[in-house]
């Protein structure tokens, strides 16, 4: 079953008097429980594609079906609802609210979803426990290490049980060891049945995924399965 089905998507930006074709003609299908990496050099359109896939932006032309709903014709409020319920974002710079503790950061999407207080506290707490932060629930972002911050962000992405996790360079701001731990966490999440889309420009990060889509100049250059996929070792998972 397709979760994401985009057909002939184009995105044109108006910069001054010039038109910039960030995406020219992109068609991708992503199934449930896939682990896809989107790669490409800067300027290839991968950020734009990620924004479109994440319903942060709408394509100029083309069709985008998300869970059989036509996203390309939705208004702001409907898009907000899709982002809230169906998509979990993980950003390179974590993007946590700096003055709120881990628990509040994680419960925020549930607030917007209208989940009652007691239930959402419970769910947020559980999500933090799931990413191994049971001892950091009331810490603020500046009291956490980079890896821990990214774990909070991942907990925030997972707490609404979204259809897809959209990760934009999730290891970009982390050292390689911490990055590896985060990738291991993604692997676990994938194994639990989640769909993950990973945007990166680093080959060895992309090789954690099962499929790599390469973009160039707003077009799909290649779309193939990873033959020798890198599976992180579980024994390094216990290092927190």
């Amino acid at each position: 079953m397709n979760i994401i089905n985009i057909e002939h998507i184009a995105k044109v930006y108006q910069v001054g008097f010039e038109e910039v074709h960030a995406l020219r003609d992109v068609s991708i299908r992503i199934d449930k429980n896939e682990y896809v990496a989107i790669m490409g050099p800067s300027g290839s359109g991968k950020s734009t594609l990620m924004n479109v896939l994440g319903c942060l932006d709408t394509p100029t032309s083309g069709k985008y079906d998300f869970n059989n709903q036509n996203v390309s014709e939705m208004n702001d409020n409907q898009l907000a609802k899709i982002r809230n319920k169906e998509i979990g974002f993980v950003f390179q710079t974590f993007n946590l609210l700096p003055r709120s503790d881990a628990l509040h950061n994680v419960e925020l999407p549930l607030i917007y979803a209208g989940v009652p207080t007691a239930e959402r506290k419970e769910r947020a707490k559980q999500a933090l426990i799931d990413v191994g932060l049971e001892n950091r629930i009331h810490h603020k972002p500046n009291e956490l290490s980079g890896g821990q911050r990214q774990r909070v962000a991942i907990a925030r992405a997972l707490v609404t049980n979204p259809s897809i996790i959209l990760a934009d360079e999730p290891t970009g701001n982390l050292d390689s060891k911490t990055g590896e731990e985060i990738m291991l966490l993604f692997n676990e999440i994938h194994c639990k049945g989640n769909t993950i889309i990973l945007v990166t420009h680093e080959e060895y990060i992309a090789e954690h995924a099962a499929r790599i889509v390469r973009l160039k100049d707003g077009l799909v250059e290649s779309d193939e399965k990873v033959l020798n996929r890198y599976i992180p070792k579980l024994n390094s998972a216990n290092v927190n």
Binding site: N77, K81, L97, P109, Y112, R156
Partner: peptide, 16 residues
């Protein structure tokens, strides 16, 4: 601005 962006990304509507 960034905080508003984050809030919107995780599902805050305009009226929120």
């Amino acid at each position: 601005t960034k905080e508003i962006g984050v809030r919107k990304a995780i599902g805050a509507k305009r009226r929120t």
